[in-house]
Nucleic acid binder design. Structure first.
Lengths: 234, 234
DNA sequence: GACTAACTCGAACGGCGTGCGAGTCCTTTG
DNA sequence: CAAAGGACTCGCACGCCGTTCGAGTTAGTC
């Protein structure tokens, strides 16, 4: 059945619905969280929004810029306690855990985070609140910056490695236990010459994947905070 | 001038020259170091080797596998002192600096490092030597793993952020001083609402880019090692 | 009813990783 | 010496990508 121009009905709805940057960012976030950076393409994103691929370019200059927006979105999810509530040390601990869980929620972050500087509004706000928190510890002005960026770098470094491990498990499609036993086997094959490594892998996987990774994270964070605290007391 | 088949001279050289995996890896390394991940394509790599693009696939299964080889190549550049030479703490410090400078030499590493696990031969050897070093500190078996991976994560996290900063300067095409003053300005524009951040940026850039980044790195590493040392003495 | 600004989108460009199959060379075997 | 076969190269083509361009549609204003 052909539809002529004159039989075609008029658009009933008067108000035109329009794409918005927020909408695009939200849709991109769900794709990214589900499929990673490799799974995000402008065409796919547009399809999810029932739009033409090139329509996106009216709202966002470039894919890279879109990713910048998404990164800053993540920074907005992190909370930094005010030092009055529980003191500096407890606050820093909470901050670290909040940062970690945000990255675990958005495992694509490490892949893109290090290729560009973070100067979005949420990043700025995060930094400012961090300075307040670490300022309450009693560091000199100069040390405030150093201490805060040490903690951030430790957390991001650790959790980036953690994400790599978790993604490897996820992509293998196996259960955790299954994967663990397999990776032990594989590591032993590759590292047959390094018995220390074999033992290390086995030790690491003994407590279970999740617990092991958490323990790993906490251990180093505690040590770092100990070291920082010692500096402030001096 | 046409060249007939019968006037064409025979190949003088008897032994055929052939691509090799080592050759490919080496060429890819120079491209990567110079132009980053975005600058490496199979066609460009092949051109550099005067070969057809698809010839590479006889020697290397996939571009991702090639990158894996390159990552492991970097792990091979890092040295881990034996603890007998200077003790644990000094060894860990040297290890950290060696790791840092390797990443600075290959600034593309953070972009790809976190997307895959490192189980190549050099990674294994690095891990094994690390375990020896940290084993000499007096940790329990379990703590050896935790301590070593804390240090690695801290170093990689810090230097990844450092690389992002340095690349930003490099790509801006400006001199360091020029860039610094510009970024201060820009940060103040973006973060006008956050006077603490303005002050922080100015403080960080006061000592010069290179010195500031090094100081940042050393400060956190020292603190972390302090914290670890305290654990071992307990 | 004409004009304009806001917004959409199909076609096309150049580049990408890679599978395929034909082609070339060198060595081995008879 | 010829034939066979493995080692290696590579042009073509496919389907995907980010992005540009210019033409199109719509909603609101005079």
């Amino acid at each position: 059945m052909k539809d002529w121009i004159w039989t075609r009905e008029r658009k009933a709805s008067p108000a035109r619905e329009t794409l918005s940057r927020e909408q695009i960012v939200a849709a991109a976030m769900t794709i990214l969280d589900a499929d990673g950076v490799a799974g995000l393409s402008m065409r796919k994103l547009a399809a999810k929004l029932d739009a033409g691929a090139t329509s996106l370019y009216w709202h966002v200059p470039t894919k890279d810029d879109l990713v910048d927006l998404l990164i800053d979105e993540v920074w907005g999810e992190i909370d930094v306690p005010e030092p009055e509530l529980a003191g500096w040390r407890a606050g820093a601990l909470l901050f670290g855990h909040s940062l970690r869980s945000a990255v675990l929620r958005h495992p694509w972050l490490p892949e893109v985070m290090y290729t560009r500087p973070s100067i979005g509004p949420n990043a700025m706000s995060l930094g400012a609140r961090g300075l307040v928190l670490f300022g309450a510890a009693g560091f000199t002005e100069h040390e405030i910056d150093l201490a805060m960026s040490s903690v951030m770098s430790y957390v991001l470094g650790t959790v980036s490695a953690e994400v790599a491990t978790r993604e490897m498990v996820r992509k293998s499609g196996r259960s955790e236990d299954n994967w663990v036993s397999q990776i032990v086997e594989q590591a032993e094959a590759v590292a047959g010459d390094y018995p220390e490594m074999q033992a290390s892998v086995r030790r690491r996987t003994a407590v279970g994947l999740d617990a092991g990774l958490t323990q790993n994270f906490v251990f180093g964070l505690d040590a770092l905070l100990d070291g920082l605290e010692a500096r402030v007391k001096r």
